[in-house]
Amino acid sequence: METVKGPDSLEKEMERMVITYQHDLLRLCFAYLCDEELAKDALQETFLKAFRSLSGFQRDCSEKTWLTRIAINTCKDIRRSAWFRYIAREITLDMLPEPAAPVQQIDASITLAVLSLPPKLKEAALLCWYQEMSYTEAAQTLNISPQAVSNRMKRARKKLRQILEGSGFHDAL
């Protein structure tokens, strides 16, 4: 017999998900949008959409994959807006929020390099490197094949090395 979750248990589950995944998803949204306020909006919208769909979540993928998929689609919607396109989106260090502690130059360079990758490569890099997903999980999130993820990662690696060598960091990755 199928167990139907009541509203109270759904709310508790949503609270647990927010506590568990807010940290990583906020950073993912920020990496996608490079704007703190937009990232917070995207994060809230992500959890709101997740809560609305929670009772129908079939668990055919992990929670993290499911939430990440929603977050990426939400960020893509924001990126598609005409307003977003009009804003200059060249990434510089001063666009990032003031870090809590001094950041080593190599760390800043790696971050800027990842953020400046072309969108599809950046997407794959954020999932596989930053979110520590396997190629299979990343493929499920992006609705592409694992082979396509692998190809994007190869290109991302190559591009990243070019960028980092240009900044004087050889063998950084």
């Binding site: 807010q22 906020l26 920020f30 990232a39 929020p97 502690a101 760390d107 971050t111 930053y130 990755l173």
Partner: peptide, 28 residues
């Protein structure tokens, strides 16, 4: 190792991003 390097770098750079302690309540 790539994951460790990138995650360490980006977490350090993004350490100024703060979570919202009341996000769950606002969503509900």
């Amino acid at each position: 190792k790539e994951q460790q390097k990138v995650r360490t770098a980006m977490n350090a750079t993004f350490s100024g991003l703060t979570e919202d302690n009341f996000l769950a309540q606002r969503i509900l």
